[in-house]
Amino acid sequence: MSGLLGKDLLGLEYLTAEQITQVLDTAVPLKEISERAIKKVPTLRGATVVNLFFEASTRTRISFEFAEKRMSADTVNVASAGSSVSKGETLVDTARNLEAMRIDMVVIRHGSSGAARFLAERIESNVINAGDGTHEHPTQGLLDLLTLRDRFGDLRGKRVCICGDVLHSRVARSNIWGLTKLGAEVAVCGPRSLLPNAMEEFNVTIFDRIEQAIEWADALNILRLQLERMQAGHIPSLREYNRVFGVTRERLERAPRDILILHPGPMNRGVEIDSDVADGPHSVILDQVTNGVAVRMAVLYLLAGHNPKLAAAAKGGA
């Protein structure tokens, strides 16, 4: 079973380099479907996917929904507000009730680290982690890897620096796992108050100054600075953050080489990234969004291949 995804996608920590490469290789030809006049293939016809979002999300949920629809799955969106979740129903009860309605896959976004695994161990359907607490956001990691691979060809030896609030970022964790497994060199850069203590365990370099990161890197993945962090006292002010850690055109012009600019969105223009950089010639931020749909289509396709319920349906219908 090597090289194949199993039942669930919970995090990049649990995948081999071969499995990650398989998702990326599958995503590449799937990009073409979104360029067609009829943006749809019949692959997941009859499969039902529930998007179970316990946290606010626009981009990720829409991206998953496009991916599901372009693969012809039927989709249902459940948001915590306005559902029985807000009446105190437990995660497992919600999922079991959905499963009793004969669903095949669950895409889950949850504020607690480990929520996706908790669910995956208790239901038969495929589970895709769309972000759990500060743990992982594997499809974001995969789309970042695809975007980098599109430009670099091979990630081995490429230097990627993740900038900003690494401490609270599941995107950072998925990136570090994925990049390391594909052979890239990884660094982080940000105020020490926003970096985890155990950074050394990840085998990544730490830069305290953004200028050092820019001198070192082939690509910067600039994380969103969440405004709550300021209120919590992690940083003194947004202006100060921009002055010390903001990625600006002036700083990039001093770089020894062209640096690719990634950002998972939504951006705080003028805080962690300046508009000149976000809209500049080396920004691949919109490519990331396009690649997100293809990567999620690939994950749906690969997981569906290991769903016994879908297999039985295919045999019965053939």
């Binding site: 479907i33 019949p42 396709y301 349906a313 295919a314 045999k315 053939a318």
Partner: peptide, 9 residues
């Protein structure tokens, strides 16, 4: 591939 009738089997 995406149009096959035996994908899951």
């Amino acid at each position: 591939t995406l149009y096959r009738d035996d994908l899951q089997s």
